[in-house]
């Protein structure tokens, strides 16, 4: 079943928001878990599009990378970027 962008986007946002009390950043694998039937590469396309639309942003530990909703999370504030 091919992913429809708007549906997939809504599901990812719903998943991330449901966890927002404890964490705001997710590994790619965690987000693929929202679509257990889909190929990882197809999920990646959805996420790429969400990044391009400024809904999601990357967060990097240097060695790994996580995804989160733009503006969410404590790290953004802790880094006190101007």
């Amino acid at each position: 079943m091919a992913l429809v962008y708007d549906d997939a986007k809504a599901k990812i946002v719903e998943f991330v928001e449901s966890k927002s009390k404890t964490k705001s950043k997710f590994y790619f694998n965690d987000l693929c878990g929202v679509f257990p039937e889909e190929k990882q590469r197809d999920v990646k396309k959805i996420l790429n599009q969400m990044v391009a639309e400024e809904i999601m942003i990357y967060w990097s530990s240097g060695s790994t990378t996580l995804y989160g909703l733009k503006g969410a999370g404590k790290q953004a504030a802790a880094e006190h970027e101007d």
Partner: peptide, 13 residues
């Protein structure tokens, strides 16, 4: 200190 900023718009590294 480490910062989580990853780069430029649309890039994750």
């Amino acid at each position: 200190k480490h910062g989580g900023i990853v780069g430029v718009f649309g890039y994750g590294g």
